[in-house]
Design a protein around this nucleic acid. Structure first.
Length: 867
RNA sequence: GGGCGAUUAGCUCAGCUGGUUAGAGCGCCUCGUUUACACCGAGGAGGUCGCAGGUUCGACUCCUGCAUCGCCCACCA
């Protein structure tokens, strides 16, 4: 096979991926059939965090795919039963709003103009297209996903799982329906969960208003029409004369009202005047106060964000338009005390591009996280089958006991903080795209079940479920649930690792833990590995509007999938954001090419290209060195991947490939011959070690070896226990480096061959250099002459004239260098001696003291050579 | 307001449970058109590890405080 000078990723990647698909080796069932793994082998399983069907893959997805594929390919090569299960998420709100926007932008229609059925068809269409794009992109990255098991969070099987769990929870009393204050998005006409809103700080006016004998503060005067409770802290001395329950007549926006005094600890006496009025229908705190004291409440703002009849002359107006008019009226009535213009107010926004949240009291479905129920069957450490528990306890227990380990560790704290403060989860949404709530009503009757009830007159609840409800089931809804006899459930659940971004630890990771511990009495996964966000080279979030987005497909097109993968794995650590630039990817493209050329050279020089399975015999110190370095590399790479240190593994592989194999061993192999077997052996193993990181180029090179198997299913290299002393080789390296430095410092042009007379009285050195003379000479472009005598005038004269100045300059340089080195060495020895004279010798652990003594000995020996 | 993280070479970051003279990649400088590779090779410069204390024989590493930046959470009307 003729190999091109540079690796052209485009010529190979699609074809290689197709070949893997043809062999069906991403499917563990096929691997068992082919004997690549066995039914009895340990399993490694992972479900892909399903990308939303809202568009295309971004760099974050690419990072996720790269990291997960490393784990999967590594474990597959280890011979484990390995399953990586793909899918996509319907992402209810995100997808619906995207389609609504497209619909409105293109036709000016809203979803209501189309009607539920027609609109949903449009969304399905969009989702299908988006899905197809995403899948093809995942393939471009080289992801070894088992496509035969692909799932969608909104398909029939997942819908059955959703309905089954819903029914079960309802029967356990965990799911309930209630009137609660929710985050209403008037733009989307739906409520959203606390996690779906983001707060934005805004500088607004803050109004101090006269409310009878009190002054109250508010940033939102338009909500104040119905305020008839005035609240203060029970211990506030300023207001002791007012008693709880006392009634006061006062003039308010639209005339006289009777206000009731309420004492409640929720009021901060230090804030403003320490007195506030409440609007329970549109404020969470106020709602809670109202509930505590059994107060009545009234709706002021309707679902569209317009004022209601209570606002009288302002009724029907948009709240934001009405505000200045209301303030004006308050001013005219003399109720406006003052305005603070620099008030920082946080407003809640629906983070999926929706509108400004207006809290509203509405009837919704909730999951009660504090309700006790009996867990019939438990595989959870610390909880026995039949124990009475709450969802919150389950979520806490599995992480506390370390049955689920979160990487990096610090996210445990984040997780607990969230779970400990978790409130009931509102799961109903007033949008159309999603799992319809499996509840039917007929008059006062209510029916909850997987299938629609028999008989006429039943109306299904129009709402759909929060998208995270179905995502929460993902690890087991993809494995056949509710059919618990499904072999996948037995063979691959709980999954081994959940790898995802730290930004969705609450949304998703916590919900999966909730859903799985509840439904199965088991953990969904053993490890949670959290990766950071991919940012631009300045550390800014990538966003379309800023224009700093790096598209993974562009990078693959330009530099290849392997380089793109490396750039997302090397130099990044779990839980920390990673900065990415095109030049970083380009750098790794250079490296991919380096590996390509090392391979190309070996393939071209070697007598016969064949796969060498067992370690060949080492004939020289270079052979011994490279084999032991390889051995260490296998050890390190395996350990690092096992410990999720992908970056470190990559760095060590990089170092070996470039700085050891290419720069030293291959160069020496040009001088010392008969290294075919070792070159092939090292290369073969190196390809295996690199394969999880860069599957394409390694597979392409592997094809040159005449083996039947694809690299993707070869066995991971084994560590040999042989011990080798590499001191000799490092001496050789030192000598070569020194001579090279000498040459450069003496200003000798790189191409020219020079003569060097090595004068030394050390016989070991003479002997050593004599032994490796050829290698040293060729590696340093020199002719060596060895002598124990100081050169006489005659000697110098005998050297060809053109070498004469060279010799003298080299000696001067060498002398200076030596002097400098000697000085450093003496300093170092002094430091060591002082250290050993101090308490260090008495108090430090023995082996460390020994090590220091050894160092001293070596340094002193080295110094002796100078003298 | 609470919590978390970061601060190490010009840039991007490693540095595991305290123990060599603190590392890598990129960039920079010098030299080189050597038939594997210019997507290359050889050599080099560059850091009092944010600041101030403390613990220790020994601190980039542990503790306390401070500063700057970033993120997350929270019902301050």
């Amino acid at each position: 096979m003729q190999l091109s000078k540079t690796y052209q990723s485009k010529d190979y990647e699609d074809r290689i991926y197709q070949e893997w698909l043809d062999e069906d080796i991403f499917n563990p069932d096929t691997c068992i059939k082919k004997g690549i793994t066995s039914e009895k082998a340990e399993h490694f399983s992972m479900v892909l965090p399903p990308p939303n069907v809202t568009g295309t893959l971004h760099m974050g997805h690419a990072a996720m795919l790269a990291i997960e594929d490393v784990m999967v390919r590594y474990n597959r090569m280890q011979g484990k039963r390995t399953l990586w299960l793909p899918g996509t998420d319907h992402a209810a709100i995100a997808t619906q709003s995207k389609v609504e926007k497209i619909l409105f932008d293109t036709t000016g229609q809203t979803r209501h103009d189309l009607g539920r059925e027609k609109f949903l068809k449009k969304v399905d269409n969009f989702a299908q297209n988006s899905h197809d794009t995403i899948i093809s992109q995942a393939k471009k990255m080289g992801s070894s996903l088992d496509w035969s098991r692909e799932a969608f969070t909104l398909d029939k099987q997942r819908n059955l799982a959703v309905k089954t769990v819903f029914e079960k929870m309802y029967k356990d009393g965990i799911i309930y329906r209630g009137d609660r204050i929710v985050n209403w998005d008037p733009k989307m006409q739906s409520n959203v969960s606390d996690d779906e809103i983001e707060r934005i700080e805004e500088t607004t006016d803050f109004y101090y208003l006269k409310y009878g004998p009190f002054t109250i503060g508010t940033a939102r005067p338009e909500t104040k029409f119905g305020d008839k409770y005035v609240v203060m802290h029970p211990d506030d001395k300023r207001y002791t004369k007012y008693k709880h329950g006392q009634k006061i007549e006062l003039e308010w926006i639209n005339g006289l009202v009777t206000a009731t005094i309420i004492k409640d600890e929720a009021v901060d006496p230090k804030f403003g005047t320490g007195v506030m009025t409440i609007t329970p229908w549109h404020d969470v705190t106020d709602f809670e106060i109202a509930q505590r004291h059994n107060l009545s409440y009234e709706q002021i703002i309707d679902e569209n964000g317009k004022l209601m009849a209570i606002a009288q002359e302002f009724a029907g107006q948009d709240i934001f338009d009405a505000r200045p008019k209301i303030v004006n009226k308050l001013k005219e009535k003399g109720l406006l005390v003052k305005i603070d213009h620099n008030y920082i107010h946080s407003i809640a926004k629906n983070y999926r591009g929706g509108g400004i949240i207006e809290p509203q009291i509405r009837t919704q479905w909730f999951i009660d996280v504090n309700k006790k129920f009996t867990l019939p069957h438990s595989n959870i450490d610390g909880i026995k089958s039949g124990d009475e528990v709450t969802l919150k306890q389950l979520m806490q227990t599995v992480v506390q006991t370390r049955q689920i380990k979160i990487i990096p560790d610090r996210f445990n704290k984040t997780y607990f903080h969230w779970v400990d403060n978790l409130r009931d989860w509102c799961i109903s949404r007033q949008i159309w795209y999603g799992h319809r709530i499996p509840v039917w009503y007929k008059g006062d009757e209510i029916y909850v079940g997987v299938d629609a009830p028999q008989g006429d007159g039943w109306q299904q609840d129009p709402d759909t479920l929060d998208t995270w409800f179905s995502s929460g089931l993902w690890t087991f809804s993809t494995m056949g649930y509710p059919d618990t006899n499904n072999p996948d459930m037995k063979n691959y659940h709980p999954t081994t690792v959940m790898e995802t971004g730290y930004d969705i630890i609450f949304f998703w990771v916590a919900r999966m833990i909730l859903m799985t511990t509840y439904t199965l009495g088991d953990i969904p996964f053993k490890y949670v590995y959290l990766h950071g966000m991919v940012r631009d080279e300045k550390g800014a979030k990538m966003s379309k509007s800023v224009g700093n987005v790096i598209d993974p497909l562009d990078m693959i097109e330009k530099f290849g999938a392997d380089a793109t993968r490396l750039s997302l794995m090397i130099g990044t650590t779990p839980g920390n954001d990673m900065k990415l630039s095109e030049s970083k990817v380009a750098g790794f493209r250079n490296f991919v090419n380096k590996l390509w050329n090392i391979s190309r050279y070996i393939m071209m020089t070697v007598q016969e290209v064949k796969h060498i399975e067992t370690e060949p015999k080492a004939n020289t110190i270079a052979d011994e060195w490279i084999l032991s370095e390889l051995n260490q590399l296998i050890k390190d790479t395996s350990k690092d991947i096992d410990k999720f240190n992908f970056s470190q593994a990559g760095e060590k592989l990089y170092d070996f490939t470039w700085n050891k194999l290419a720069d030293w061993y291959v160069e020496i192999a040009k001088i010392e011959k008969n290294k075919d077997d070792i070159l092939l052996f090292v290369l073969g193993n190196l390809l295996k070690l690199w394969h999880p990181f860069m599957p394409f180029v390694t597979e392409v090179i592997w094809k040159n070896f005449s083996t039947d198997n694809q690299l993707v299913i070869t066995k991971w290299p084994k560590v040999s226990s042989k011990k080798v002393d590499n001191n000799k080789f490092s001496t050789l390296q030192t000598i070569i480096s020194n001579i090279r430095t000498l040459r450069v410092n003496a200003g000798i042009t790189a191409g020219a061959t020079t003569k060097i007379i090595l004068v030394t009285t050390h016989n070991d050195l003479i002997n050593f250099v004599q032994e490796y003379k050829t290698v040293i000479e060729k590696m340093t472009k020199t002719e060596l002459e060895l002598t124990t005598d100081k050169p006489t005038k005659d000697d110098l004269a005998s050297i060809h004239e053109s070498y004469f100045s060279l010799f003298t300059s080299i000696s001067t340089v060498a002398k200076n260098k030596q002097a400098e080195e000697k000085k450093n060495l003496e300093k170092y020895i002094l430091t060591l001696k002082n250290k050993l004279d101090s308490d260090f010798a008495k108090k430090a652990p023995k082996e460390i003291v020994e090590k220091e003594k050894e160092k001293l000995k070596q340094a002193e020996e080295k110094l002796n050579k100078f003298l």
